[in-house]
C-alpha cells in the first residue's frame, strides 16, 4: 500500500467519485466529480474503473508528496502542475518518486484537474460513495464531508501500470465559447418567444457565483409566463430560471428538489465541458431533442469503452 501526503490544499480540493445513487428520495444530493469525463479518463489511464475515487482539484493550490515510488494519472484542466518544479501536462499517467512533490498552481486551461491512483484512492464509503459534500457532512477523507487538508494521507493499493498518454484524438479540447447542448424540458413553451430565441441565440457568460451546486449564467433576461411550480425533482444539468431571469445550471451538489421553471437540462458532455469553464468565459446553448442526444451519447460512450 502506497500513500501520498497532502502538503497544501484548498477547500476546493476534494475526494470524488461518481457520486451517491439510490438515496436522492431522502434529500441526499448526488455529488461526484463535476467533470465526469476527465475523471473517467484519469482512471482509464491506470486501468481503473471509470468512477474509482480521484482527487478533484479546482483552480489549483494542491501539493502532494509521494511517500513511496508510485504511478499516478492526471486528466482535465491544465493547472500548471509541476513535479519538483518541472512542468507536467495532463492527459497522461506519470511516475512520482518517493519524496517528489506534485503541485498544482493556477488554471492555464480549464478549471478542474483529476488526479487518479492505481485502483483508486482508499476512502470511507458513506451511503455508497466517497464523494465529498461539506454541506451534507458526507464523504471525503473523514467521511464527514471534509475537503483535503495539509497532513492528510491518501492511500491506494493498486498495481502500477505501464505509463501512457490518452490518444491525441480523444483528448477533450477546452476551446473558447463552447457549445452546450440543452435537452428541452417541459416548461420550454412557458417562456416568452423572445426568451427562447435569446436563450439559444445570444451568448451567455459564467458569473462568479459558481460552485459545485450551480453556475449562474449572465445574459438576456428570460421571462417565464407559466404558472408557479410545485417543487419537483431536479436532474443533473438542469437549467433553472429564477424570477430574476438569469439561468442557473445545476451541478452535482444541487438540492434534490426545487420549484423554479427550467429551460431543460445539459447533456452529460455539455456538463463535462461546463465544469471546465471559468467565471467570465462565454458559452452558447443549443437546443437538442432527448432521443437524438441519447443516441449521440451512446455512440460517444461506445468509443470510450472500446478504447483499450
Amino acid at each position: 500500500m502506497s500513500h501520498l501526503l497532502i502538503q497544501a490544499s484548498t477547500p476546493l480540493c476534494l475526494l470524488q467519485d461518481a457520486g451517491r445513487f439510490g438515496v436522492r428520495h431522502l434529500g441526499v444530493t448526488q455529488g461526484g466529480a463535476a467533470d465526469w469525463l476527465s475523471m473517467a479518463w484519469a482512471n482509464w489511464l491506470l486501468g481503473n474503473s471509470p468512477d474509482a475515487a480521484v482527487i478533484e482539484v479546482t483552480l489549483g493550490g494542491l501539493s502532494v508528496v509521494a511517500k513511496a515510488d508510485c504511478s499516478l494519472a492526471l486528466a482535465g484542466a491544465d493547472l500548471a502542475a509541476t513535479i519538483d518544479g518541472q512542468p507536467l501536462k495532463p492527459w497522461r499517467s506519470f511516475a512520482l518518486k518517493q519524496g517528489q512533490t506534485l503541485a498544482f498552481t493556477r488554471p492555464l486551461s480549464g478549471a478542474r484537474a483529476y488526479l487518479a491512483a492505481p485502483a483508486g484512492f482508499v476512502a470511507p464509503q458513506v451511503l455508497g460513495s466517497c464523494a465529498t459534500v461539506a454541506r451534507e457532512q458526507l464523504g471525503g477523507p473523514d467521511g464527514f464531508g471534509r475537503g483535503l487538508v495539509a497532513g492528510d494521507e491518501l492511500r491506494y493499493h493498486g498495481i502500477v501500470q505501464a505509463l501512457r498518454d490518452i490518444p491525441r484524438e480523444h483528448v477533450p479540447v477546452f476551446a473558447a465559447n463552447p457549445r452546450l447542448d440543452v435537452i428541452l424540458g417541459a416548461q420550454i413553451g412557458d417562456f416568452t418567444g423572445q426568451s427562447t430565441f435569446d436563450a439559444f441565440n445570444l451568448p451567455w457568460t459564467l458569473d462568479s457565483r459558481a460552485d459545485r451546486m450551480g453556475i449562474r449564467l449572465l445574459g438576456p433576461e428570460l421571462v417565464y409566463q407559466g404558472a408557479p411550480m410545485i417543487s419537483e425533482g431536479i436532474p443533473l444539468g438542469a437549467i433553472q430560471v429564477p424570477p430574476d431571469g438569469q439561468p442557473i445550471v445545476l451541478l452535482n451538489d444541487r438540492q434534490t428538489i426545487g420549484g423554479y421553471p427550467r429551460l431543460g437540462a445539459l447533456t452529460p458532455l455539455a456538463m463535462a465541458r461546463l465544469a471546465q469553464s471559468l467565471p467570465g468565459e462565454a458559452v452558447r446553448m443549443v437546443p437538442v431533442m432527448q432521443e437524438m442526444a441519447h443516441e449521440q451519447h451512446l455512440r460517444y460512450m461506445k468509443r470510450f469503452v472500446c478504447l483499450k
Binding site: 445513487f21 436522492r24 410545485i230
Partner: peptide
C-alpha cells in the same frame, strides 16, 4: 434514482 415530490415522480 426515483425522486418523489408532492405531485411528481422523477425517474432517473
Amino acid at each position: 434514482d426515483l425522486v418523489p415530490s408532492y405531485t411528481t415522480l422523477m425517474v432517473h
